[in-house]
Design a protein around this nucleic acid. Sequence first.
RNA 1: GGCGGCAUGGCCAAGUGGUAAGGCAGGGGCCUGCAAAGCCCUUACCCCCAGUUCGAAUCUGGGUGCCGCCUCCA
Length: 512
Amino acid sequence: MALKLYNTLTRHKEPFETLETGQVRVYCCGVTVYDYCHLGHARSYIVWDTVRRYLQWCGYQVRYVQNFTDIDDKILNRARQEGSTMQAVAERFTQAYFEDMERLNIQQADAYPLATHTIDGIKRLIHELENKGYAYPAEGDVYYAVRRFPQYGKLSGRKLEEMQAGASGRVAIEEPGVSDRMSPKKDPFDFALWKAAKPGEPAWESPWGMGRPGWHIECSAMVRQCLGETIDIHVGGSDLVFPHHENEIAQSEVVTGKSLARYWLHNGMVNVGGEKMSKSLGNFTTIRDLLNAPNLLEPMVLRLFVLQAQYRKPIDFTDPAIASAQNSWLTLKEGLLFGYQYGEQLGWSDRHDVSFGDPACMRISTSELVKRFQIAMDDDFNTPGALAVLFELAKDLRREGNLLIHAGTSETDSQALRQQWQTLVCLAQVLGLESRPPMITETSHAVASPATVSGTGIGSLSDAQIESLVQQRQSARQAKNFAEGDRIRNELQAQGIILIDQPGGVTRWHRS
RNA sequence: GGCGGCAUGGCCAAGUGGUAAGGCAGGGGCCUGCAAAGCCCUUACCCCCAGUUCGAAUCUGGGUGCCGCCUCCA
């Protein structure tokens, strides 16, 4: 049993080996903070959070670093539009990022370096590149001379000769007189390490004049500063493979003479109608738009939606897909809440302990199901396979719960059920899927002993009123007056009271 | 044009040589006055063609279709 990961660098699944025993250093490319995060971002960070959780569960000590790009043309444009400043825009959307991620149960990184706080490291790196002859200044900019680095293209598997500069259609092919400023690049594939400041833009002093860093260089500087010269895992969206990660490698490896990362992992895109969700296409939905009114989607639905596909494959964001995930989550949630709902009835004496329901305090056996979960996750984080295990546990628990509600008892051993529940809670937590009751009160047994249930909802019937109506219905039914009996049941149902007729003429009830 | 990826039931999705996990949605039956719950049953020629093999969704070759990247990107 050993973890294997698909490494973009080699295009193979490889056994995972750490640089230092028991320690994993991970760098994740973060967002440019100029707008709210959309579902593409959600997927990426849910996936990497799950990878991190799994590594932790396997016993690794994980150091996880993720940057914020807080200087960029898009941020400046937004600031200009709003009559605001780059810093204000960046801070606002950084805050929004944290809010969104917290809802999705994404653990905080160990460090969040900012581009604007890494200027010294960036300048040092550029300087070293310049000294080694890989960077050249031009009109206040500094460029990386891509053709000097023979290994350029090793991550994305391309050769400069085979690429068609400008094929994406986004870069104006430079023709004399067309652009207002001819690029001073010596080669179209060269990229900017440092950009000369335009009037009025934030700028830092440097040996090349007032300016600001290019995009790619910040990650090279941050990895080096926060994690060291070689890290275990570098992750990000598959759209970053080229040129961003390729450029990071070119920058870092020339300076250090060492590999930047052992494993490169890339997540697949979120599609809409078969096309990539992106800002430029305008087909994006922000995380908050999906989770806030009017959708009021539980954040775990989004998490589940993402984890139901293998992380490298594209997923299609559609209404039916979300509806399906929503129902799936309901099933899982019922299982996760099982202990809270039925623990008392099953005689779990520690139900009111603070640690009840805390996965950290649970001990799960190495059952067949846990092994299956592990085998799935060990295979390049096969979360759909892992989820199949969770569903088996949850569905089983749901069945037991139904039997407890409807029959009042279950054949299954209480401790066996407890083991199942704890296994589910623990494994679900590895995937970041969690649910706890909104509040636990002494009187919140939703089932089993109606007399102790307190009706607190506005306009709800008291227990005595309910009992009385149930009695009336019993009488009607005994008199074969089923119309009246059904009328009373419907009336109660409208108030959220569910009646269950049992063999022997006993009617149980509970609030839904 | 170059590089890479994908194609499995109504929808989603695992599975990389031995005869198809799981989720969602549906159908039928038992039980029940009706419900609820439970139980049982139920839907796949794995894009096409050729090949290798005792045996292929899984390997090889050739098609077809879709997607991503080729300096904004998660």
